[in-house]
Simulated assay, not measured.
Amino acid sequence: MNSRRLAALTGFLLIGALLTGCADDGGPAPAPSQHPTSAADGTGATPAPSADQLTCESLISDGTVAALTDAGWTAEPREFVVGGVELPQGLLCFWADFTVPSDHGQMYGWSPLSAADAERAQAGLEEEGWRIEEGTAGVYVTEDPQYAMSTDEDGYGMTYLFGDGWVKVADTKQGLLLVEGRE
Rank of each mutant, 00 (worst) to 15 (best):
F162T: 00
G90N: 08
K168H: 05
D164Q: 14
V167K: 00
P36Q: 07
A8H: 13
T10D: 12
A123V: 05
F94W: 11
Y108G: 05
L176E: 05
D154R: 09
G11D: 14
V65H: 04
A71K: 09
I60C: 03
D103C: 09
W73F: 03
G109I: 04
D164L: 09
Y147T: 14
A148S: 13
L9N: 13
A31Y: 05
G44C: 11
A45W: 01
A45L: 07
E119P: 02
G135Q: 08
L92I: 02
D97L: 06
A148C: 07
G21K: 13
Y160K: 05
P47D: 04
T37I: 15
P47M: 04
T20L: 09
G63H: 06
D144C: 04
D24A: 12
L6M: 13
L176A: 03
V65N: 05
Q146D: 15
T64R: 05
L13I: 00
A66Y: 02
R4M: 10
G163S: 10
A23P: 05
D52P: 01
A39F: 12
R131N: 11
L19H: 12
A116Y: 00
D117I: 00
K168T: 11
W73K: 00
G83F: 05
M107R: 13
P77F: 01
G175D: 01
G83H: 07
G105C: 07
G84Q: 00
D97K: 06
T37A: 14
Q122E: 13
S58D: 05
Q174L: 11
E134D: 15
L113S: 06
I60L: 02
T43W: 11
D164Y: 08
A137D: 15
A137W: 09
Q34F: 13
E128D: 15
D171P: 07
P32V: 12
T136C: 04
S102V: 03
G84A: 05
A8G: 13
P112Q: 08
I60T: 02
G90H: 05
L125S: 12
G42V: 07
E119V: 06
Q174S: 12
A121C: 04
Q34A: 15
S38Q: 14
